[in-house]
Simulated scan of single mutants.
Amino acid sequence: MHQNRILLWLLAFGLLIVSCDSKRVYDVYKSVPNEWHKDSIVSFNITPPDSINPYNLFINLRNTQDYKYSNLYLIVEMDFPHGKIIKDTLEYRMADPSGKLLGEGMTSVKENKLWYKEGVLFSESGDYTVKIQHAMREIGMVEGIETLEGITDVGFRIETAKKE
């Protein structure tokens, strides 16, 4: 009887966790080993669930205290199934004016959910590819930062845009 109660409690807890993230359609992280090189592209191959519902797209980052900048510049490219390509240069705030890193997390690793695109319709059938690379530069320097420290994981997330 006691085991059944524990099993029911675990099942209820699991359902609660899953229901808290009911908008998630796709959520994948890829590790960045030690440093993120400026030529290293993190790619995600995506098969959208449908072509009629709108979706919100996010870039997810995990970073440590070794990340020493207040912002982050990314180049994000979305390759469509039939050859169309959209390329964006994006800037995100990573720290407040005092230098405290933004993001969620109680440990030294912070997780940032960064808006990429809102209300996207995947109108072309087939697989899409999202490519992400950093585009950081020091002030006054033409050449980009060769290796970026403190980013541990880069992720891509798709959520339903419907209100629940």
Rank of each mutant, 00 (worst) to 15 (best):
M1Q: 09
M1H: 05
Q3A: 13
L11C: 01
A12H: 02
F13H: 08
F13Q: 00
G14T: 11
L15Y: 10
L15G: 11
L15C: 15
L16F: 11
S19F: 07
S19R: 06
C20S: 15
C20K: 09
D21L: 13
D21Q: 14
S22M: 12
K23P: 04
V25Q: 04
V25H: 01
D27N: 11
Y29H: 05
S31V: 11
S31L: 12
V32C: 10
V32T: 08
P33D: 15
D39L: 14
D39H: 14
S40V: 10
I41A: 04
V42M: 02
V42A: 02
V42L: 06
S43I: 09
S43F: 03
S43R: 10
F44D: 03
I46H: 04
T47I: 12
P48G: 04
P49D: 06
D50C: 01
S51R: 14
S51N: 15
I52T: 11
Y55E: 09
N56G: 03
L57M: 02
F58L: 09
I59Y: 04
I59L: 10
N60Q: 13
N60V: 11
R62G: 14
R62Y: 12
N63L: 15
T64K: 05
T64G: 04
Q65Y: 11
Q65T: 15
Q65C: 05
D66W: 13
D66L: 13
Y67R: 07
Y69W: 12
S70F: 14
S70E: 12
S70T: 14
Y73F: 15
Y73D: 09
V76M: 09
E77I: 02
E77H: 06
M78G: 06
P81K: 12
H82A: 09
H82W: 08
K84G: 04
I85Q: 08
I85M: 01
I86G: 07
D88T: 13
T89A: 10
T89D: 05
T89N: 10
L90H: 08
E91L: 14
R93E: 13
A95K: 04
D96V: 06
P97H: 07
S98D: 14
S98P: 03
S98M: 10
G99M: 02
G99H: 00
K100Q: 15
K100N: 15
G103S: 03
G103M: 00
E104R: 10
G105E: 02
G105Q: 09
T107K: 12
S108N: 11
V109A: 09
K110W: 01
K113P: 06
L114I: 02
Y116D: 01
L121D: 05
F122Q: 00
E124H: 10
G126D: 06
G126Y: 03
T129D: 11
I132W: 04
I132N: 02
Q133Y: 00
A135G: 03
M136R: 06
M136N: 07
E138R: 08
I139G: 11
I139S: 11
I139N: 09
G140E: 09
E143W: 15
G144C: 05
G144E: 03
I145M: 06
I145L: 02
T147N: 14
I151T: 01
V154D: 03
G155I: 08
R157L: 02
I158A: 00
T160N: 12
T160Y: 08
T160W: 05
A161R: 07
A161C: 00
K162S: 11
K162P: 05
K162N: 07
K163Q: 13
K163V: 15
